[in-house]
Simulated scan of single mutants.
Amino acid sequence: MLVLRDVTITFRRYAGLLRQVEVPGVRGVSLRLAPGEVLALVGGSGAGKSLIAHAILGLLPRNARLRGTLEFDGQVLGQPYPPGLRGRRIAFLPQQASHLDPTARVGRQLAWAARRVGARADLGARLAALGLPQGTTRLYPHQLSGGMARRVLAAAAGAGQPDLLIADEPTVGLDPASAARLLDRLRAEATRGAAVLLISHDLPAILPLAHRVAVLVEGGMRAEERAADFAGQGDALSSAYARALWRALPQNGFDPDA
């Protein structure tokens, strides 16, 4: 179980030569994510979605200040990431292909990912599940298309069957077929029992996969809804903001006041 209670993230910066100020990033966010559940964290650029992921992973920069409670499986998370975490595995599927080592072939990097978590390096099955040919293992990252690189990152993140999988904008830059394959893999992880935190700005794309949707706006939580309630005119949605967001989508006529 992942639990965030009143999580606030600020950044200390200099204003002039000597004076320091705290710049807000995320304020008062509370969330719960259970095993086998997919929670979609939705919002525009700068809403604070990736900051929350980085806080969970202990990857916030040194000038960040984290307040509130952040726990996974009863253990406190934050900065730095606690070693050992009682054998529980947290995996991260990043947005940028730059997370791949440019000096190592894909096969070696996938083998490293499996070895770090004590899993079998079944490269062929892992690549096939994401629609990648066997020859991909011999390629270097610069020889991959953007979509292929994203799927390689997904294969690495799924090594060792993590208990919590955080996916940051996993479908950006993918064609519809590749995006569907990747989302199917995330669904399979949840079906297996993993908790999946899916970060996205694309609400329609993640609705078939998510159980719940949390909406961030300018660092604050504006709505939390059942994914199934984003349907029709959104009359089942409890939040006026979520209802307006849903109705403003192109397929719903760009009409937040409908």
Score class of each variant (00 low, 15 high):
A15V: 12
S200Q: 04
E169F: 12
L197F: 05
D202W: 04
M221K: 15
G253I: 06
P141R: 01
G58V: 02
G118W: 03
Q143K: 08
R32L: 07
L245K: 09
A167R: 10
G78Y: 03
T8W: 04
A179R: 15
G68Q: 01
A242R: 13
P162N: 04
G48W: 06
A223C: 11
P170S: 14
V117T: 05
T191K: 14
G48C: 08
A157L: 10
L4R: 10
R88G: 06
A129S: 14
L100N: 07
S45A: 12
P24E: 13
R116C: 11
V152Y: 12
G58I: 02
A114S: 15
P250F: 10
Q95D: 12
Q75I: 08
Q109D: 01
A34D: 03
R138H: 15
G68N: 00
M221I: 08
F254M: 11
R120W: 08
R108F: 07
D184N: 11
T8Y: 03
G193L: 01
A227R: 00
I90W: 00
G48R: 09
S178K: 09
V213H: 14
P256I: 06
S239L: 02
G43D: 10
T137D: 08
A40R: 04
L60V: 04
F230E: 10
A34M: 06
G146Y: 03
T136W: 04
G234A: 01
G36W: 00
L249F: 11
G173Y: 02
P80L: 04
L130Y: 07
Q96G: 09
R212A: 07
P24D: 12
L182A: 14
P61T: 02
Q143P: 08
V42T: 06
A236T: 11
A194P: 03
N63R: 11
Y140V: 04
L57C: 00
L127A: 03
R105K: 06
I206R: 01
D101C: 01
E22L: 13
P35K: 01
N63F: 08
V29R: 00
A155W: 09
A91G: 05
R32T: 13
G74R: 07
G220D: 05
R108P: 05
S200K: 02
H211S: 10
Q109C: 05
R13D: 08
L165Q: 01
Q161I: 04
A114N: 13
Q95I: 07
L66H: 00
H201G: 07
P176A: 01
T171C: 15
R65Q: 09
L2W: 06
E189M: 14
D235S: 15
L153E: 10
A205N: 11
P170G: 13
D229C: 10
L77V: 00
W246N: 05
P35A: 07
Q233G: 15
A236G: 13
V217K: 15
A195K: 06
S98W: 05
R89N: 02
R243L: 00
L66R: 00
P35S: 04
D175A: 03
A194R: 02
P80H: 01
V117P: 08
A40H: 04
G158K: 12
V42Q: 08
I166D: 00
R243K: 08
L41T: 05
G118H: 03
V38R: 15
R185E: 08
Y140F: 15
D235W: 13
E22I: 06
A179Q: 14
R5N: 09
D6Q: 15
G44M: 07
G68H: 01
F72E: 02
W112A: 13
L203C: 04
A195P: 02
V215Y: 06
P204Q: 13
A97P: 13
